[in-house]
Design a protein around this nucleic acid. Structure first.
Length: 417
DNA sequence: TCTGGGGTCCTAGGACCC
DNA sequence: TCTGGGGTCCTAGGACCC
């Protein structure tokens, strides 16, 4: 088999770059990328973390995921802009459209990352590195933001390559370069080695990707189970996964969650928050033509203790009221009275709603489904606030919580490339 | 002045059936 | 009265990704 050519294209500081480009296009004179700045939430509503940072902000040691407050302490003149997800969806789309002009084999991996398979393109683009530069420059010149491109023979190595020096760079990481370019890096730089795994590895004197690659995989499996074998293969640059073109978004679950602006300490308020989450979740599963057969809720108390509870359903459903009723029952079984800062609802075990059995004596009757359908169509036409439940009036809560504004057209990344 | 929100996959333990 | 295994399903929690 001819060797494969895979590219991974990653937008540099995606949210922040897109925000910067958008502002420049709308007459702003300041380019956010040139000053210490972050895209982040609002601390007043307890959403205050850094989502993306500019490169000058990185020089102040500001990290993604830390609080706005910590970031400000490191850099008082830091500029903070709130996220605008529907803008990011559009940028992401435009990004993908450029890539589709190069190869039909394009896979969106997340909002700011794509894989492109160039294996069969060698007679159009005989030099993959030149093609990578062309992609990088075209996106920069036409869309106004920069990307990193990793070029290799599989997805894992291409992805690792795109992480090297940023921004606006092309890097290769072919098999013969692994030893020199990848093995000296610390283990936590390897895809799928996070905090917990890197601690276990460090405890056992494995600090670099090279040391992991040289370890005995059977020994790794003793304390990391199957994950040990996975990261050992990755450390050795082995990955046979394919660029999944036209992959039908086989979504496994749809959920929404929210950190409330204040602690929720009574059942009535909790039910209302759950309702606003279920409104969004149920709307999304109906819009995608699904029914769910598993409802789960999660809570986080004011000590950040996280717990969840779920229930399998006998009849699949996409009905707002029914899902909400189940969520409330699950809540009563789960909650032990501690004030809560976060609630979530998720619908899983999705199936098509095409042949949904309608039983006559439950909440899933024809009328109920018609009501949901009607409300959905009004919301699609006039926005999510066009119809809202009376229970939210004067509640201080949003009638629909969660979601990004637009439906994402791609599946979320999975742990296996 | 604390610490988001969207996902996927894996594991361990218990229930239940044969 | 006291004892098998194997298989599947369900649930809770944890790890990872962006």
């Amino acid at each position: 088999m001819a060797s494969r050519v895979i590219m991974h294209i990653d937008a540099n500081s995606a949210y922040l770059s897109w925000e910067a480009v958008h502002r420049l296009q709308h007459g702003d004179s300041l380019d956010l990328r040139t000053v210490p700045s972050v895209v982040g939430g609002n601390p007043e509503t307890r959403h205050g973390i850094v989502l993306t940072k500019s490169i000058p902000a990185k020089k102040f040691n500001i990290k993604t995921g830390e609080t706005i407050w910590e970031a400000k302490a490191k850099c008082p003149e830091l500029i903070i802009v709130p996220p605008n997800y529907s803008l990011y969806m559009q940028c992401s789309q435009a990004f993908g459209d450029v890539l589709s002009g190069y190869s039909p084999l394009v896979e969106q991996y997340s909002i700011d990352e794509y894989f492109v398979d160039f294996s069969s393109m060698h007679w159009i683009y005989p030099d993959p590195v030149a093609a990578a530069h062309s992609i990088k420059n075209r996106i920069r010149d036409e869309l106004g933001f920069t990307v990193n491109v990793g070029v290799s023979s599989n997805k894992l190595l291409a992805k690792m390559g795109s992480e090297f020096q940023k921004p606006d760079k092309v890097h290769t990481l072919f098999t013969e370069e692994i030893m020199e370019k990848m093995w000296p890096l610390s283990v936590e730089e390897l895809f799928m080695v996070g905090r917990a795994t890197s601690k276990k590895l460090y405890d056992r004197r494995i600090r670099t990707i090279g040391e992991l690659a040289g370890a005995d995989p059977r020994w790794l499996e003793l304390f990391l189970k199957s994950h040990g074998r996975l990261i050992w293969n990755y450390a050795n640059g082995r990955d046979a996964s394919l660029v999944r073109v036209n992959r039908h978004p086989v979504v496994k679950s749809m959920g929404n969650s929210t950190t409330t602006a204040f602690d929720v300490d009574n059942q009535r308020e909790a039910y209302l928050v759950l309702l606003s989450l279920v409104e969004t979740v149920a709307f999304r599963i109906r819009a995608a033509g699904y029914c769910c057969q598993l409802v789960s809720i999660s809570i986080k108390d004011n000590d950040f203790l996280y717990r969840s509870h779920q229930r399998k359903l006998y009849d699949p459903t996409d009905c707002t009221n029914l899902i909400h009723r189940i969520a409330c029952e699950l809540f009563d079984e789960l909650w032990r009275g501690k004030p809560l800062r976060h609630l979530g609802v998720s619908a899983a075990d999705l199936c098509s709603n095409e042949f949904l059995q309608t039983s006559l004596f439950d909440e899933q009757n024809e009328q109920q489904r018609d009501v949901d359908k009607t409300i959905d169509s009004i919301r699609k036409r006039h926005g999510s606030l066009a119809v809202q439940r009376a229970s939210f009036l004067h509640s201080g809560l949003k009638p629909m919580t969660g979601g990004t504004g637009e439906e994402a057209e791609y599946p979320m990344m999975s742990s296996v490339l």
